[in-house]
Structures are given as C-alpha cells and as structure tokens.
Write a protein that binds this DNA or RNA. Structure first.
Length: 584
RNA sequence: GCGGCCGUGGUCUAACCUGGUUUAGGACAAAGGCCUUCCAAGCCUUUAAUCCGGGUUCAAAUCCCGGCGGCCGCACCA
C-alpha cells in the first residue's frame, strides 16, 4: 500500500474524507468530508484568511455559485472552457479536434467553431492519428455545468462557476468604493466551484465539485510596490523558470525574494510577496520548503492575457509535483472584459499631486474602410470600438497586428481601420483599469497535501501530526480508570475546557493506551488524563502528540495554557512540570 | 472515451485459477460487560460482507455476458 492508499484507508475509517454517495456506488470527482475532515478543512480556510487577508489588511466577499451566461461570455469561459471533441469511427479514440488538426500539420487559428473545424478536417483529409480511420462530426464539450434559471418557458441560461474569481471583478467597483477607494486592494473569496471534468482521477486531487480560494489583488499598473515586502524579502524561494523547463535541465533556482525581483525572475513586487507568503503558509501547515517549488508556466500553457504565472507545487508520493496554488498576473484583462460586456465604467481615478499636462491618445475609426470591409455591421463596430480603451487598441495593433472587438461576434479590426491622434491636455489625475495579481488555492489539494506530510507511523501505529493550530480536535479528556470518582472529575475538566471554546472530546472507553492511539490517528495535539493524584491535588497529565512526552499541570491553568499552546505561543514542555509515570 | 488491473463486514484481507466440505474464514476496529494507576494488554458477549443485473449449472463469491464504480496508463486538466 502506498501513502495515498494508507491515507484513504485512515480517512474512511476515521471520518476525514471518503467518496460521496458511496451507498449508491460513488462517482468520480466527488468526495465528502467527514466530521474530522470538515473541521480540518475549515481550519485551513480560516488560517488562510487570517494570513492572507486579515494580516494584510485586505477583504473577503461571498458570491453566488450560479451566474448568468453573460458573465462567462465576458470572462472568456464560454469560448475557452469548451473543448471541441471528435471520435474515430473505427477505433473509438476521442480527440480534441483542434489537436488532431494541428498534429496533422495544418495551421488553424484559435477559437474556431465545431463546424469550422470539421470543414478543415474534410478539406485537408485529416484522419485518426492512431489507426487512420475516419473522424466523426465534432461536438463541443463545455467543462462548465449548465443550468436553466427560472421556469423553462422564460428561463435564461446560467452556469455553475468554474472558479470563484469572476465575482471579484464583477463586484469590483462596489467593493472598491466601500473600501474607500484604496489600492492595492485584495478581495478574497473561498467557495465551491464546479467543473465537469471528462475523466477525473487522483482522488481528492481532481474533483468535479471543489473548494477554491481565489484572491484578486487590484493595483495601479504604474505602482506595483508592496509596502510589506520588507517582511519577506529575505525568504528563500525555489523557482523553476520556464527557461529551465524548455532547455530540459530543470534546475531549481534557490533565491531570496529580493534576488528574485532584482534578477527579474518575478516581475512584480506584489506577486513576489504573495508567492513567498504562499510558501510560508504551506510550511506552517507542515509541508517543508524543500518539498515545494514555484514553477513558472511555459508561454504555451499560460493564458494569453497573463504576463506571468507560477504554479506552487508540492511533492506528493503518488503523483509527484502537484499544483496546489497558482499565481497569475492577469493584467487588466478581466476588468476590461467586464467593462465592454456590461458597458459600465470600471476604471478608477487617481488624483495627481498637482494637475499636469498629459498626452492622451484618442482613436478615430476610419468609417469608410470599416464600411468597405464590414458593411452593415459598421454601426455596431464603431459603438464597440468606442467602448475600447484607445491605449489597449493601439497596443494590440502594435503587438499582434490585430484587435479583436469584445463581444460574441469576435470581429477583427486591423490598423487601417483606426487612426490615432495624440492630444495635449491638462489632467488632475488619471483614470486607469486596475491590474490584477491572482493567487488561487485548491483547498482540497492543500488539505490532502497536509495529510501526506502529517501522516507518520510509529511502532505499527498511525500518528497524524497535524499542526496544532489547525487540528480539528484540540484535546481529548481521559479518566485513567472508570471508578472511584475519577470519571466525575474528568467530566468536570472536559466541561471546563469546552466552556472556554476549546474543541475537545471525552473518551472513557477501552484502555488508556487505546485512547492515546485513537487520539494519534486524528491528530489530537493534547491528551489530558485524570488520575488518583488529580483527586488529591487538582493536577492532570498532558501528553504531547508529536513526542509522546508528558507533563503535569493544574486543572485551573488548563483553559488559558491550552489556548496559548494551540496558538503556538507556548511550547509543550513549558506548560507544566515533567512527568514520567508511563515508562514501561 | 480507449487499453490494462480490480470490486468480499467499518478497515485490511482468505476462499476465486481448479464451482460443492462455507452456516463465506481471519485480523484489526466498533458496541456492551469484567478487569485495568498512563501508550492499540487480557477475558466474555454482540453487531457486521460477496457492487448490481442476467446467463451457464443440480449447485455461483468462484465461470460467462452486460451495467455501475475504482485505480493505473493514454487523452484531457481553460
């Protein structure tokens, strides 16, 4: 049995996680969390919130899981989250249609529809790469779950969100103003997401319904500095650059945050800071830094709008390097898309210290040439163009030679269609579309990674060394024997600590050794035993999960000292005086 | 979707190849009791399983077919 099998076995047995609707046979990509797992997962989410949001002075929101289709048209998910698939009529092999075509050496542009791709297949006589058989008619497969909102005779189409992120962009203006217009502004959201994966595998690593934490940090593209960078600038990062991957050497560069920025490995202070924070977060959850790496995505795997994307990967025994979080510099893509689709101005205004003369680009559509190429669509094109930022249009022409108009039509304009003029004007400030750095975490993957690094075996027993601040149950209370008034005192102790909000349970069954063993399996940091001495002097024995060492302390000190211990403000041996009754 | 392997109490498994001695066995866990002065001790009792459907056969956990589900590989993972 490998580590994954042993963790699965433990998880089923002790209520950590297990397949959903198991009594009906289960279904790939769906997992439930049991009593221990559900609390552990929430503790992870809360810790993330504390570190990334509370301590950074940022905010969180909570949005809906179902959104109308227009949001996903704007976000690009309708277009890009769809795979167009085809099947070989002879050998039944399934392919992505665009992949087979490209494999056959035929150049095609992105975003073709199913019928268009099929046309190419017929024209170029593309066949099944495996057996040479004929390919079936293509059909689109969208990885989003489609839902009909409202009764069927007047329903509108919506989708289950495949990420938590869109609401941050859609709600940006509201949150920005309620947070009194400050930048950088981070807006986080932890929430359930849905992706209709074709073939989910790998247990809790690839799910159809899962929890994601999306964090959108909005900032002024002219100022990506982050004041708290000093706190982490000496932290070491293990970076695998895209260059090292393409060259095949795959050497990991170990540099400090400061060096990474200086050498340009990470292009942006905000991104560097939160990458460093992500590494520290996982370290605090028990994944050592040398078992983590930051892999820069290759240009071809990166989304086209992303300037730079890193995957935070953790080494897992069965699956090797596994992505648990990503950090993408998404530029102003999302906000600008929602501007054009909603027609609302989502730019922010920033006043200059004093008014200054600025040169401003304005665009002038070349009506005649547009008319010539697009005929009656001219009016619509000019309207759509007026909603586009001239700077962005010009930049597209310069970099790609073409500008794709927003909206479902995906019409393309070329430099000849638009003239630009630079005018001088006086400005009291500037309007701009904020740029966004997006760290996002797969909570279920973080959860599983923690279990892998917490799982240990000692003398045939399982010990789950979960860091104590996220342990689902903080303390177990045991009566040494079930007689002579000891259970009564033990129950008093139990009540005392749960009254003080310490998550605890009482266990009086079986032998004391058996109870310790049960505690170890679900990572309970502290076991409290009440014995005959407790009746005399009101002291109890505490046992530490990691070392099994024991100390003795006063019952009245329990609540406060336990709180401090759980928060990591005190070490186990400082809780009381050493105790050695258990040596055998 | 394809190919390979697989599916027995809560967990891990035996019996499957070679159908019948099985009332489906064991270990661990769990529940109740006895015992018990700090690491899965012992004793007694109890609960508890052949994924679903069809076929072959006097007889199916076992052989065959189909379905469902899982793991691994391929593909996919915006």
């Amino acid at each position: 049995m490998d580590l994954y099998d042993r963790i699965s076995e433990l998880s089923k047995r002790r209520g950590i996680f297990f397949p959903s609707f198991e009594i009906y046979g289960g279904l790939g990509g769906f997992y439930d969390y049991g009593p221990i797992g559900a609390t552990l997962k929430r503790n992870i989410e809360n810790k993330w919130m504390k570190i990334f949001v509370l301590k950074e002075g940022m905010v969180e929101i909570e949005s809906t899981m179902i959104l109308p289709s227009v949001v996903f048209e704007a976000s690009g998910h309708i277009a890009h989250f769809t795979d167009i698939l085809t099947k070989c009529t002879a050998c039944n092999e399934t392919y992505r249609t665009d992949h087979v075509i490209k494999e056959a050496g035929v150049e095609i542009r992105e975003g073709l529809k199913a019928e268009e791709l099929d046309k190419v297949i017929r024209k170029k006589d593309v066949q099944c790469p495996k057996c040479g058989g004929e390919l079936e008619k293509s059909s689109p497969f969208n990885l989003m779950f489609k839902v009909e909102i409202g009764p069927y005779w007047r329903s509108i189409t919506g989708y289950g969100r495949p990420e938590a992120a869109q609401a941050q962009f859609v709600d940006f203006k509201r949150v920005y103003s309620s947070e009194r217009e400050r930048l950088p502004l981070g807006i986080a959201q932890v929430g359930r997401c849905l992706r209709n994966e074709i073939a989910p595998r790998k247990g809790p690593i690839r799910l159809r319904e899962f929890t994601i934490i999306d964090y959108e940090i909005f900032f002024d593209p002219d100022d990506s500095s982050y004041s708290r960078i000093e706190l982490l600038e000496d932290q070491k990062l293990r970076i695998l650059t895209s260059k090292e991957q393409t060259s095949g050497t795959n050497r990991i560069k170990e540099v400090t945050v400061k060096e990474a920025l200086k050498k340009g490995l990470i292009g942006n202070e905000i991104q560097a800071y939160f990458l460093a924070l992500a590494v520290r977060f996982m370290k605090e959850l028990g994944v050592p830094p040398e078992k983590q790496r930051l892999r820069e995505q290759l240009p071809e795997e990166k989304a086209h709008y992303s300037k730079q994307t890193f995957d935070q990967e953790v080494w897992l025994e069965r699956w090797g390097w596994t992505e648990i979080s990503g950090s993408a510099y998404r530029t102003n893509y999302d906000v600008s898309r929602h501007m054009t689709y909603s027609g609302k101005d989502l730019r922010v205004f920033k006043a200059f210290d004093k008014p200054k003369k600025v040169r401003k680009i304005i665009q002038k559509p070349n009506r005649e040439l547009i008319q010539e190429d697009f005929g009656e669509e001219t009016k619509m094109i000019i309207k759509l163009l007026s909603k586009s930022d001239p700077q962005v249009v010009k930049q597209n022409f310069e970099e790609r030679g073409v500008y794709e108009l927003p909206g479902p039509t995906s019409l393309k304009l070329y430099p000849k269609h638009v003239d630009f003029e630079i005018i001088e004007t006086e400005a009291t400030g500037k309007y701009f579309i904020p740029h966004v750095i997006e760290p996002s975490f797969g909570v279920d993957r973080v959860f599983y990674s923690i279990l892998e690094y917490a799982y240990t075996e000692k003398g045939g027993r399982v010990i789950l060394r979960i860091p104590r601040d996220i342990a689902p149950i903080k303390a177990l209370v045991f009566p040494l024997v079930n007689k002579d008034g000891i259970p009564e005192l033990a129950e008093k102790v139990y009540n005392l600590i749960i009254e003080k909000d310490i998550v605890a349970r009482y266990d009086g069954s079986g032998s004391i050794g058996k109870r310790y063993a049960r505690a170890d399996e679900i990572g309970v940091p502290i076991c409290i035993t009440i014995d005959y001495d407790s009746l005399k002097d009101n002291t109890v024995t505490l046992r530490d999960l990691d070392t099994w060492s024991q100390i003795r302390m006063k019952i009245t000190d329990l609540p406060e000292k336990l709180h401090r211990y759980i928060k990591g403000k005190k070490e186990f041996n400082d809780l009381g005086t050493p105790y050695n009754k258990n040596s055998t």
